[in-house]
Amino acid sequence: MSDMQAKLRETAKKLLESGEVGYIIGWGKGRTNKTSPVFVKEPAKVDELVWNEYCLNTLAKYTMDNMYPEKKIGLCVRGCDSRAVNRLIQDNQLKRENVYLIGLPCEGKKDPVTGEMVKKCIECMHHNPLEADVMVGEPVQEKGYPDRFKDVEAMEALSADERYEFWAKQYDKCIRCYACRNVCPACNCRECYVDQYRVGWQGKQNNRAENQVYGLTRAYHIGDRCIECGECERVCPVGLPLMKLNRKLLKDANELFGEYEAGMNTEVKPPLGTYKLDDHEEYM
């Protein structure tokens, strides 16, 4: 781990010194075990970058804060971050030539409080960056995630009433902080439907109905574009099992349109973003 950290800093330093990149987005040290996204501009400050078992946040979406950078943005990418990059490129929110990808194979990250591997990393199917301009560290063994749809199948086995009750309890908890949306690389709309206050798609009251409208709408909006990084579920302060929803839509997409994972490349279009004459009607 620390070898990789040293190599990351060295790489970062070179990139900044040569002027190849304007700044680097990576992880830095928090007060506790936690890490926190950092933006390093000066070669002298590359020691602010850390690479350890607590580097949890996905970073790609920060490129949206600077859509017309003067120089390339150096972006640290693990498997999930690289899929997020593909997501943003495919959604026309990022140009490949605007980023310099520093690839970091990742064995999975731990919760800084409990010290246990976090759920999103247990469920990760791509630990190695799918694309990088430079690689730091050796590729790690991919394990896949055979249980990808197991939770969804368990939900599907319940009756409609039982499912309603399950989700009602969950959405009664939602505080509508929108952390799930804001952290999500697929939620990259310049203006979210939630914020279109004049149209009023989304009511502001916090109650079961409005909260469910929000949850369902977001789930559908990202239905075939969710890269399964699990960040929404990780950041939800009240612990909604959001990946159950997201994977339900992905499972349907897989069953109706053939095997599919989002953000694997920039060529294969999301199934709902294309139209074929023999498409299934059921999805509508």
Partner: peptide, 22 residues
């Protein structure tokens, strides 16, 4: 720079008191 503009901090804060009327 790293803030993602969610409302978590303000909604878990015991003293944040801003409201909207609709």
């Amino acid at each position: 720079q790293k803030c993602i503009g969610c409302g978590t901090c303000t909604y878990v804060c015991p003293t944040c008191y801003c409201f909207d009327i609709e």
